[in-house]
Design a protein around this nucleic acid. Sequence first.
RNA 1: GUCCCCGUGGCGCAAUGGACAGCGCACCUGGCUUCGAACCAGGGGGUUGUGAGUUCGAGUCUCACCGGGGACUCCA
Length: 572
Amino acid sequence: MTHRQAFATVPLREQIAELLRVGLQDVQTTGALPPFDIPKIIAVDQSRHEAHGDYASPVCMGLAKVLRRAPLQIAQVVAQHIPAVDFVALVEVAPPGYLNFTLSTDWVAHQVPTILEAGESWGNVALGSGQRAQVEFVSANPTGPITIGSARNAVIGDTLASVLAAAGYTVEREYYVNDAGSKVRNFGASIFARYANLLGEDVPFPEQGYPAAYVTELAKHAQAEFGDRYLTQDRDTAIRALGLWGIARILDGVRDDLAQLRVHFDTWFSEKSLYESGLFDVMMAKLREGGYVVEYDGATWFRHPDLEKDAVLIRSSQVIPDPEDRPTYLASDIPYLWNKIVERGFDKAIYVWGADHHGDVPRVQAAAKALGVDVDRLVFVIYQMVTLLRGGQEVRMSKSSGEFVTLRELVDEVGPDPIRFMMLTRTVDVTLDFDLDLAVEQSDRNPVYYVQYAHTRIAGVLRKAVEEGCDLDAPGDPALLTHPSELALVRKMLALPEVIALAANGMAPHYLTFYATELASLFHAFYRDCRVVSTAPEDAALTQARLMLARAAQHVLARVLHLMGMDAPERM
RNA sequence: GUCCCCGUGGCGCAAUGGACAGCGCACCUGGCUUCGAACCAGGGGGUUGUGAGUUCGAGUCUCACCGGGGACUCCA
């Protein structure tokens, strides 16, 4: 579990919105303009062009209609009422009605010691205000090794969890183990068949079984561990026992594989426990009471007005042949959401699901409504699928045929850093081509190393400084940081809090990769323009100031890399 | 058939409803006798799939259409 943050700042964008709010209120109270409603959300954007300052607000344009005045004129009045603060040097009015804010370069330079002191907590914001958020992700069926698709899930979920923690949420990471239902039985039957074959028994392989090689491997382990014990007992009992044993073994592998990708879970939650605890039955009774359950075609269905004529199968012995009459996969989602929100009291339950599950979203939401659970506390992050490319060719994957690339193979071949970075370079909404050849390539064509290179380059500069006898911990004078490249670098560092807020609000971890790349780029520009380590005596103070800046930049780069679950190397 | 995602320079992608739509790859030119060239600087290249609508303002929102991918009781 990630605990509450000790350090947080308010993003500059919000601070400027607050200045505008105060200014607009002042306009009201002084009667400088006719009365109007102050917008609840005051839009402030980072300026895209230098000529427009650092931040810009179009708020006055929205007021033009109500006030029946030209936006430019309104902006001119409002600008007069913006309170003076140390961090804003200039408020300008620009046609057709923008208010442009320019940060004080002196103030910007003086933030460097603050950033340095904050260290790895720089960027934290108090968005979550200690609310408890659970991120449930991966949750792949434990009937086989984790594949490349789950890698995207793992990286998105884990990074989102880190981002939410940085945004002030108390975060838990959870893996939902599908250890109930007919899958377990088919899996157990598959192991049993291979196991029996190894012992010379002619047991046919189940139709719905898992023919992959790892099942035979499991059977060999079972033979070594249990001998012929499972041939001598009741077959159903044996299949069940081998199924659960197999799942436990697969999960051990899953845990190891994910650890290689630097993904760790606080909780491994058993689907089976939802039935064993009786919660499923309690939920069914509750739904029945509300009239949300219907029976027909020999099956039990969940119905809700939101789903129109689309009823959801809950339990059937006819529609899906199952001797144990088990509830369906979807049925488990109902007690599970209750468990998350009501029993465990998470303020937010975040589901990271592949696009192949998007159809289940309205069903779970409808179930939440039927149970009286606030739907807004369930957040669904649906990401598009991954295709793996090797030699420009798509590598087809199919668990049933047993042909797939496992996460383990991928990590062994590529390493965790390129996987994590590449999985985060796109929005979750677009399908991702994972190019194996590019990922393993250690060259400037591989974008992964661009950011890490900036970090090591700083490390190199600092090593050089120590060689020259510099004291890295000695304070530098921020007032000496006046070069445009120095100030551009600091401005980008100052933007981290709003990047984290943006990523957390939008459940959009890809902002981190873009930010990291921009930050690295600005460091490289600084490096080009500003010599850091100078041995000339008259440069001593400037060297000290730039060392301070370089160290701060290194911290911020490391912070972002760590949020993405990547290494921040001293050497490459 | 119903639903979801995508359509932006040659290719791959960004852009919290705001100003002249950015970045990487590829291509062309230039930069290491001083801190790491896995780097930097400059250049060419765009009617944001089409058509309407909402808005002071649309790549972004709505509708229709076209094209690609996916889901619809195994799958991340």
